[in-house]
Nucleic acid binder design. Structure first.
Lengths: 334, 334
DNA sequence: ATATTTTATGCAAACGATTGTACAAACCTT
DNA sequence: AAGGTTTGTACAATCGTTTGCATAAAATAT
C-alpha cells in the first residue's frame, strides 16, 4: 500500500506538500498540485484513516447500536441512519447487542476512544447508566426508537398517543373485549403503549381485564404461545392489540390455529408497519412508525452535535405515527 | 481521556512498562504490575485502538457488506458473523449497499486501508471486479450467500440442488403447471435456482412454459404485481415456486386477492425459511437455508485467513439446505 | 535597485501506542 | 568476592498522517 511518502517521492515534493495538496486548505502551486495528483493516481494512494484519525482526533465514523438486528424495525432505522451519514461523509458501524447489556458495554468500550465520533442507540432503557455516562463525558449521543427520560437527545414517536388512538379505533369499531400483547415492560416504550391502552379503555368506560393482558418478554417470542394458551382456556377477546407487528403475526397464527377467523371472530391491530405487514392475511391494520425517517433524523442530529453545534438542552423529538387501516379489523354492531 | 503516559506517570513507571504490563508478553515485576493495574483502573484507561492499529498494522475489525439490510436473510447471516467475530475478539462493521455498486466500492475504499483486516461480502456478482481485485491484492476476503465462481472463498448452499429438490417435491405431490418467481438472473444464485427448476421439470418430462416464468428484478419487489398480472391474464398455475420467502409472501397475497386459495387452488413453496415463514397463512413450505450457520462459518474462515492460516486454493464450501414441509402445498390427485 | 510583503515549500514535532536495544540491579555460580 | 546470568525497566525509534514554524523564492512596493 502506497503511503504519503511514496507519493511525495514520486512527485518530487515533501510529504507535507502532498498532505496540503490533498486537503486544499493551504495554497499549493498549481503545477505542483498536478504532479501530486498524478502520483496519487499512479500509486492508487489512499490516506490511512487510522493515522489521520490519530492526528485529527476524529474519524468521521458513528456507531449505531441496535438490540436485535433480526427485528425488521431496526434494519429500517439503520437504513435511514446510513443514508444520511453517507451524505455527510460519515461511515456507520452497526453493532447488534441481542439485548445483552454486557455485549453492549463491550461494544461501547471498544468504539469509544477515538474510534467513533458519536453514538446512536436504539437500545436505551431506564437503567442504561453507561449511555448516560457517555453523554456526561461530552460524547455526542442520540437515542432513537427507545428513549430515557428527557436527559438525552432522542428521536421517537409518541407511543402513548399512538397506542391510545389505535385502541380507540378498536373501541369505535365496536370492540369491547380488547386483549393487549405487550412487550418488555421495563422499556419506557412498552410502558407508554400500555398506558395508552389503559386510558383508551378507561375513557370509554371499559375495564382493564387482567386475563386479557398478555406479557411477552423473550427476545424472539412473538406471543403465539401466550395467545394460544389464552384461547385454550376459553378466554375469548373480540380484538387483539399487538404492540409490535411480529406479535400481531404470532397472534393471527394462534387465532387461526384455534379455528377462529381474523377479523371475523377476532380483530387484530399491530404496531410498526413492517414491509410485509401489508401482505399478510388479512393485510394488517397497524400503527405506522416512520422508521426510516426516524433514523435519518437521529443521524442528522448526531452529526450536528459532532460538528460542534451548540446543543444546549437535550431535546426529545416526537415524530408522527399514523394508524394505517387495512383489513384485520372488522366493524362490529351490538 | 487518559493515555498510556498518564497511567505511566501515576504508576511511577515508563509508558513501555505499562504497555508490557498490559500485554503480558514480557515479564513484569508483580508489584509493578499491580501499581500499573491500579492506575489503569483509577484513570479508566482504555488503549487507543487507532494508535494500536497504526503500530501493529491490524485492527481486529472485519467488514461485512450486505446488499439489502431490510431483507431478513442478511440480518440472520449478520448475527452469525457477529457472534463468531466477538468470540475471537473481532468487531464487525456492517455496511449496507442497497444493491448499489458505487456505494459498495465507496465503502470498500474507505474500509480498505488498514481499517479492516478482512471482508465478508454478501453482495458478490459475476462482475464484482473490485472484490476480485481485493483478493488479488492479498486482502482476506470471504463470500457468503452469493458467490463468484471458484476464484474466491465462499460459504453458500447448493442452490441448484435445493431448487431441484423443491420443484421435484411439487411434482411428486401432483403438480404439473409450476410457476417460478425468479430473482435477478445476473446473480449466479438465481441462475442456479432456475436451472434446478428447469432440470426438475425436464427430468419429469414436463415442459418449461415461458408464461409461467416470472422475473422480478427490483430490490423491494416481492412479485405481487407480476403474479397478479399473470392471474388476471387467465394464466393459472397449480403451484408457485418462489425463489425467496418475501416473494412467496407476495405471491400468496396476490393469489388470495384474485379469489383463489392457497394451497387449495395453488400451492406455494418459498426459499429462505425466515423467522416469520412458519407463522404465515398457510405456514410456508420452504427451503431452509442455515443462514446463521453460514454467517458463522464465513466469519471463522475469514478470521483464519487473517491469522495467516495458509489458505492455498480458495474453497467454496457448500452447506446443507433442507426443504421444510409445512402447509402451503396440497397433494393433488389426477 | 533595495526593502517589504506574499506565496510556496520543507523540516520536524506531534498524535498514542508497541518493541528492539541497552543498561542496572539482583541473583547465582565457583 | 569476582564473573556470569537473569530479570525488570527505561529510552528511543517507529507506524502514516497533519500542521506550526522557518525559510527560500517570487511578487510587489518604494
Amino acid at each position: 500500500m502506497a503511503t504519503i511518502k511514496d507519493v511525495a517521492k514520486r512527485a518530487g515534493v515533501s510529504p507535507s506538500t502532498v498532505s496540503r495538496a490533498l486537503s486544499g486548505k493551504v495554497p499549493v502551486d498549481k503545477e505542483t498540485r498536478e504532479r501530486v495528483m498524478e502520483a496519487v493516481r499512479a500509486l492508487n494512494y489512499k490516506p490511512n484513516i487510522l493515522a489521520k484519525g490519530l492526528k485529527e482526533g476524529r474519524t468521521n465514523t458513528v456507531g449505531l447500536i441496535v438490540p436485535n438486528i433480526c427485528n425488521p424495525v431496526f434494519p429500517a432505522v439503520a437504513r435511514g441512519v446510513e443514508d444520511v451519514a453517507r451524505e455527510h461523509g460519515f461511515t456507520v458501524i452497526l453493532c447488534n447487542t441481542d439485548e445483552n447489556i454486557e455485549a453492549e458495554k463491550d461494544y461501547v468500550e471498544k468504539l469509544q476512544k477515538r474510534w467513533v465520533d458519536g453514538f446512536i442507540f436504539a437500545t436505551a432503557r431506564e437503567e442504561s447508566q453507561h449511555i448516560f455516562e457517555l453523554k456526561e463525558k461530552g460524547f455526542p449521543v442520540v437515542l432513537v426508537v427507545r428513549h430515557m427520560g428527557q436527559a438525552v437527545d432522542a428521536v421517537v414517536i409518541d407511543n402513548y398517543k399512538s397506542s391510545f388512538e389505535a385502541v380507540k379505533y378498536l373501541i369505535n369499531t365496536g370492540h369491547r373485549r380488547i386483549c393487549i400483547i405487550n412487550g418488555d415492560t421495563s422499556l419506557t416504550l412498552y410502558k407508554e403503549r400500555f398506558e395508552g391502552y389503559r386510558h383508551a379503555l378507561q375513557a370509554a368506560g371499559l375495564p382493564v381485564v387482567p386475563e386479557l393482558v398478555l406479557d411477552v418478554a423473550g427476545r424472539d417470542d412473538n406471543g403465539y404461545g401466550a395467545v394460544t394458551a389464552m384461547l385454550k382456556k376459553g378466554i375469548l377477546p373480540d380484538a387483539v392489540f399487538a404492540t409490535s407487528d411480529p406479535r400481531a403475526i404470532g397472534a393471527i397464527r394462534a387465532i387461526k390455529d384455534c379455528g377462529l377467523s381474523v377479523p371475523g371472530d377476532v380483530s387484530v391491530v399491530g404496531f410498526d408497519d413492517l414491509d410485509i405487514s401489508a401482505f399478510l392475511d388479512p393485510p394488517l391494520t397497524t400503527v405506522s412508525q416512520p422508521l426510516y425517517e426516524m433514523g435519518a433524523r437521529a443521524a442528522r442530529r448526531l452529526i450536528d452535535m459532532i460538528n460542534g453545534e451548540k446543543s444546549g438542552q437535550p431535546k426529545v423529538e416526537l415524530v408522527e405515527a399514523n394508524l394505517v387501516i387495512r383489513k384485520s379489523v372488522k366493524v362490529r354492531e351490538h
